Simulated scan of single mutants.
Amino acid sequence: MSLSSHVMELKKRHTSLSDKVEKAQRSPGVDDLRIAELKKQKLKLKEEIQRLSLTS
């Protein structure tokens, strides 16, 4: 897998997590810890995307 395709895949996963976070925040039964975990995963992906973008 090339670097650019890897970055594109990470961006897709980041967008998917963004959607999950928004949906979870609108659902009253979702645990705040679950939302925090999703946000943490999203931040890690963002940092990885930025790191890879700087090296290319």
Rank of each mutant, 00 (worst) to 15 (best):
E47R: 14
E37G: 04
R34S: 10
A24Y: 08
S27W: 00
A36D: 13
R34V: 14
G29N: 12
K39V: 09
K39Y: 04
K46T: 01
K44R: 12
K44N: 12
D31H: 13
L33P: 01
L52A: 08
L45M: 07
S27N: 11
K40H: 13
I49T: 05
Q41T: 03
D31E: 14
L45K: 07
E48I: 02
R51I: 01
Q41R: 14
L43D: 12
Q25R: 14
K20N: 00
A24E: 07
K20P: 01
E37D: 13
L38E: 06
K46H: 09
R26P: 00
G29Q: 10
E22R: 11
Q25A: 02
P28T: 07
I35R: 07
S53V: 01
K23M: 02
E22G: 05
L45G: 06
E22L: 03
V30F: 03
R51E: 07
R26H: 06
P28I: 05
Q50P: 00
K20E: 09
G29E: 11
E22K: 11
I49W: 03
Q50K: 12
V21M: 02
D32Y: 08
Q25V: 05
A36M: 13
P28M: 05
S53I: 01
K44G: 04
L52W: 04
Q41Y: 10
S27K: 12
A36G: 06
D19M: 08
I35N: 05
R34K: 14
D31K: 14
V21R: 02
Q41V: 00
E47S: 10
G29T: 09
K44F: 07
Q25Y: 03
K23W: 01
E22Y: 03
V30L: 04
R51S: 11
K46P: 00
Q50T: 07
A24V: 01
K39M: 14
E37P: 00
P28C: 01
R34Y: 06
S53D: 13
K44I: 06
D32K: 14
P28V: 06
L38W: 13
D19L: 08
R51N: 09
G29Y: 07
K20L: 09
V21L: 01
K39I: 10
R51D: 08
R34G: 00
K40T: 13
E22F: 06
I49K: 04
Q50N: 09
K42F: 01
V30C: 02
K23E: 08
L38Q: 08
L52Q: 08
G29C: 04
E37S: 12
K39G: 09
L43A: 13
K42E: 15
G29M: 04
V30K: 09
E47V: 07
S27Q: 11
E48R: 14
K23Y: 01
R26L: 13
E47H: 07
L38S: 03
Q41F: 03
K39Q: 15
E48N: 06
I49A: 08
S27P: 01
P28N: 06
K23L: 05
R26N: 11
L45I: 05
V30P: 08
Q25G: 00
I35F: 08
I35K: 13
K20Q: 10
L45T: 05
K39E: 15
R51W: 04
K46A: 09
A36V: 07
L52S: 04
Q41S: 12
K44W: 02
Q50D: 12
Q25E: 15
R51F: 06
